[in-house]
Simulated assay, not measured.
Amino acid sequence: MITHYGPEVQAWLDAAPGLLEQAAERWELSLSGYHDAGHASVIALATSSDGRPLLLKAWADPVRYRHEISALQLWAGGPTADMVEVANDLGVAALELVGGCPGGADRPAREMQMVAVALHGLHTLGRRRNRPTGFPLLADHLRTEMLPRIEQRIRTVRLGVWRPLFDAANPSLADLKEDAGRTTVLHADLYRENVPFDWMGLPRLLDPLPMVGDAVFDWAFWTVYYDLGHGTDRRLATAARISRIPVPVLAPWCRALAVDGLLFYIESRDPRAQRMSEVLSSLSPSIPRRDS
């Protein structure tokens, strides 16, 4: 979290155990220890007075807290974790512990298809229900964050043997046109660890970074990042079938996200760079395709 927010977050980290303890006392929960600490929150395991297993989550960033809570409230009753309690003054929420344990229950054989159906359901709720105001916009994310950092890294990162990949994929950046008819509330952080399964074998989508924009972004993110380097082509086909967004529309968004990720991995010397380069190659028609 210090790497993500800077040294100024240390004061909040020092206070976080006390915030969780206050929330547990207020809601009559028994804390049983920390689960993990990500780059934006601290999570503890807890049990309610009637024995229900829960997660207590404390956010370092009040804005991120408000957005995530608002998204979970919007999606209530859908394929997300139930929100049991909220303490706005503490920036802490009690959430259902999906599957009764960290990581959820066992994943079914039809995991990919079931997650795709759940994501489609999430997008449907985001379109049909009245959205709270204040969510970030995908258009702003593209214009002020993602595209500028791609351009900056293209100029400054040593691309080496990967240069042809970027030359082939770069035209996709000009093809990122949103369709207003697909506008919804996006999850925007669809890594596999954010999609545990419950006791009934159903996926629950957790830890969103909600934005409002074209659903194509979520489908592209899921295609590229859900299980990096494994099943990319099958996810792309599944995304097109379930979302009814044609592959030629999805593909430029997939390539743009893969370009962004590969540049970051190269710059940070992350070993996932090779895997991402293979994903990008499989998504780039002018590069010989390899199974990903």
Rank of each mutant, 00 (worst) to 15 (best):
D189H: 14
G201R: 09
P210G: 09
D207G: 08
W199H: 15
E151W: 00
R153W: 14
N130D: 11
N130R: 15
R153F: 03
A174W: 04
L173Q: 00
H187C: 15
I245R: 03
A168R: 10
L173I: 02
N130F: 07
T223C: 15
T184M: 07
P208R: 04
R153V: 06
V161Y: 06
F217Y: 14
M146S: 07
H230M: 12
A180C: 11
L190V: 09
R244A: 09
A188D: 10
R235M: 00
V195I: 15
L209H: 09
T183S: 11
D189S: 10
E178K: 00
F166V: 09
G231N: 12
L236E: 04
G181W: 08
R149V: 08
T238W: 06
D198N: 09
L202H: 12
R182G: 00
W199G: 05
V212N: 05
A180G: 15
L228D: 06
T223H: 00
E145W: 08
T156N: 11
T156K: 14
Y226F: 15
P246D: 05
F221R: 01
E151A: 10
H141K: 13
M211E: 09
D167T: 14
L173S: 01
I242R: 13
L209C: 03
L236I: 02
I245Q: 03
G231L: 13
I245A: 03
W222T: 12
W219M: 09
P246H: 07
T133H: 13
T144S: 15
Q152D: 13
G160Q: 12
V195A: 02
R163H: 12
H141R: 13
A174I: 08
I245W: 01
P246T: 06
P203I: 05
L165K: 00
V185T: 11
L137W: 02
A168V: 11
W199M: 13
D214T: 10
P203M: 04
R131D: 00
P148E: 05
L206A: 04
P210N: 14
G134D: 04
P148V: 03
L159S: 07
H187D: 13
R241H: 10
V216F: 03
A169I: 07
V224A: 01
D207W: 01
A180E: 15
R127M: 11
L147R: 13
E178D: 14
A240M: 02
T238Y: 01
H230N: 14
P164M: 11
P132M: 09
P164C: 13
G229R: 01
H187E: 12
R127S: 13
L190G: 06
P171G: 15
L147H: 09
A215P: 09
R127P: 03
L228T: 13
L176Q: 03
R192V: 01
D233H: 11
P210V: 11
I150A: 02
P148D: 10
A139W: 00
L147Q: 13
F135E: 00
A180N: 14
